[in-house]
Write a protein that binds this DNA or RNA. Structure first.
Length: 599
RNA sequence: GCGCCCGUAGCUCAGUUGGAUAGAGCAACUGCCUUCUAAGCAGUGGGUCGCAGGUUCGAUUCCUGCCGGGCGUGCCA
């Protein structure tokens, strides 16, 4: 909070004030005023909302009504009291009290223009890092060794990556960890296949395809011949006991898988800080079982070691196995060991698990066990789950022959389809340029289509829709960016130089058209949107915001000619163009989507 | 059986601790390219938010029941 009379000094000497973003300032003052009247209210619940209807202003706050309800107070009187302590002079006109207790806030035109100039000066994109920096571990993607990454991995990978990017931009310390499935019963069968049926040439060409072929072959043989099944069991036992030959083969299977994972991650532009697979925790499993047993949380049942949830109605009927009767641990045990390791290693405030919704019960169990095991820990454990990708028939998305769709094939097709559209529009493009463009557009389209729906709903995969280049798609947003770049090209202006000139000359902004004003106000919302994306783990808020922003911009673009205008009108419009491009590209970047320089 | 999720325009989907007049794209219809990329813009039509109750200043949102669908439910993850 600043005590300076001017929220936005023209000089950048005063570091604190010059970097305070407008929405952040309003929100902080609002929280201050509410806390003063209701010290017992949780400041985290005090939200600054964007007005759905501009008639009521730019921002509104409904938190006071919620607080008053909890305290059984008259909401309107409560809001009146808050207003007495709310000072927004310099940035907004006097806040209005409306209806049962809405607080409506209308920005002053000069606050809007100052915010634009500040963004031009600092490159902040109207975003300010959080005052409370947190350490968060994000666990996502998690492919299985010896299985090709398929369409089922895409949501976890893209959601997790996007959340990590947003959290980092908001100033948090983020640790991304790919919990690869590199241990388990499937390796018995794989070892049999590797030893008896390995096609080395195919392994070199398509390692995961070959491993998948081996697995299928042996899996089928097991169903037909008990002897093969027994052989697989023996190989697994040997592996688990540390047989050198089996360990060597297992390591090679891991390595060839890792190379193919890395290829896909490079294609997707996804980077992990760590990739501790399940096997990383093998040595800790026993001590987890021991600790839970000693604490009296786990006990023997039907030959296995089981945690029961007495007194917890939602889990009472669903005990969790932590040791199978054959003595092997399962994924609950591994996940507990992983959780314990992460706590010790990184001391996170939050751990986010990005997996599909079918694992909800598992994570409820996991979190409940951990809470009993280490009640002193106050890590926020979040299961950020998502729905399935469906085909046009409403069934899980598969190939025509009923196989799962491999991620590489999916990305290939996206690029091919994008390339076709590009060549149709621009047949003279050099081959390599067209290919690069196709990659940016094709991969971007797939990612955007995946992030756009509410993550908890199943969505229907639709090539034509995601690449249709109109409507709420990545290409539409990318196109808006290229049109902006095109304006600067046409004007023979270097955008960076233009911005520097604007700042140096301490320019006056002129925004007489409602299209300009609407665009300017929309830009300022960006930071608030990102905060809600992170708090709800929902990048689709960002998608919808970017689409609205692009729509607002194209409307401005149609009605407010830039190059034909003159003087300060033109400079102001150019600034709006530049800031829009910055926010769009920053936003797309947070979704893991690149922007081409032309289309 | 029990648990979780879903049911919003013809279709595909948004809808931020409950908030003011429920939105968008596609499809349909009407305008706009000698004018910064028409991959666009402006506009029209289209809804008992599955059904029935309840909670309150206010419910698509929360609670209860019912109908319909998906997923999960002790030795895969």
């Amino acid at each position: 909070m600043t005590s300076s009379p001017s929220a936005f000094p023209h000089s950048s000497d005063s570091m604190d004030d010059s970097k305070t973003v407008l929405t952040h300032l309003i929100k902080t003052r609002l929280q201050g005023a509410i806390s003063k009247v209701f010290p017992e209210a949780d400041p985290g619940l005090i939200q600054l909302q964007i007005c759905t209807n501009p008639r009521y202003g730019d921002y509104q706050c409904t938190s006071v009504m919620a607080i008053a309800k909890g305290l059984k107070l008259n909401p309107r009187k409560a809001a009146e009291e808050v207003l007495e302590h709310l000072d927004l002079s310099g940035v907004a006109s006097d806040p209005e009290l409306a209806g049962p207790g809405f607080i409506n806030i209308r920005l002053l035109p000069e606050a809007v223009t100052q915010a634009l100039l500040q963004a031009a000066r600092t490159g902040s994109c109207f975003v300010q890092p959080s005052d409370q920096t947190q350490t968060m571990v994000i666990d996502f993607s998690s492919p299985n060794v010896a299985k090709p990454m398929h369409v089922g991995h895409i949501r976890s990978t893209i959601l997790g990556d996007s959340l990590a990017r947003v959290a980092r931009l908001l100033g948090h310390k983020v640790i991304t960890d790919n919990h690869i499935g590199d241990w388990g019963t499937q390796f018995g069968k794989l070892l049999v296949g590797w030893k008896k049926h390995l096609d080395a040439a195919n392994l070199a060409k398509d390692a995961l395809g070959e491993l998948e072929r081996l697995y299928r072959m042996v899996n089928q043989a097991c169903e037909e011949d008990e002897a093969v099944l027994e052989e697989a069991r023996q190989e697994l036992v040997a592996l688990q006991r540390g047989d050198e030959n089996n360990l060597a083969i297992w390591k090679e299977m891991k390595e060839v898988s890792r190379l193919q994972f890395d290829q896909i991650y490079e294609r997707l532009g996804v980077v992990f800080d760590h990739a501790h697979g399940e096997s990383f925790y093998n040595d800790h499993l026993h001590s987890v079982v021991q600790a839970l047993t000693e604490k009296g949380l786990a006990r023997d049942s039907q030959g296995a070691k089981v945690v029961f949830f007495e007194g917890q109605p939602d889990l009472e009927d669903h005990p969790a196995l932590i040791l199978k009767k054959d003595g092997g641990a399962n994924y609950t045990t591994t996940d507990l060991a992983t959780l314990d390791y992460r706590r010790k290693q990184w001391q996170p405030d939050e751990i986010i698990y990005v997996t599909d919704g079918r694992q909800q019960l598992h994570f409820r169990q996991l979190f409940a066990i951990f809470k009993q095991w280490q009640p002193e820990s106050n890590i926020l454990l979040s299961h950020t789950w998502f729905g399935s990708i469906l085909g046009s028939d409403g069934r899980p998305f598969k190939t025509r022959s009923g196989d799962t769709i491999k991620l590489n094939d999916l990305l290939d097709e996206a690029e091919e389809r994008a390339l076709r559209a590009i060549k149709e529009k621009n047949p003279d493009l050099p081959e390599q340029t067209a290919n690069e463009l196709a990659s940016i557009i094709g991969i971007g389209a797939v990612k955007y289509a995946d992030l756009l729906p509410n993550r908890q709903t199943d969505y229907v995969f639709d090539w034509d829709k995601m690449l249709s280049l109109s409507g709420n798609t990545a290409p539409y947003l990318q196109y808006a960016c290229t049109r902006i770049r095109s304006i600067f090209r046409k004007a023979s202006l270097d955008e960076a130089a233009f911005l520097a000139e604007c700042i140096a000359s301490n320019m006056e902004l002129v925004m007489e058209s409602t299209h300009e004003q609407t665009l300017a106000r929309k830009l300022i919302h960006f930071g608030l949107i990102l905060e809600s994306v992170l708090s709800d783990h929902r990048p689709n808020y960002l998608c919808n915001y970017l689409y609205e922003l692009a729509g607002t911009y194209t409307s401005f673009y149609e009605h407010c000619p830039v190059l034909k205008s003159e003087g300060s009108v033109q400079t102001s419009r150019l600034l709006l163009c530049s800031l829009t491009r910055q926010v769009l590209e920053k936003g797309l970047g947070l979704l893991g989507i690149q922007t081409p320089s032309f289309m």
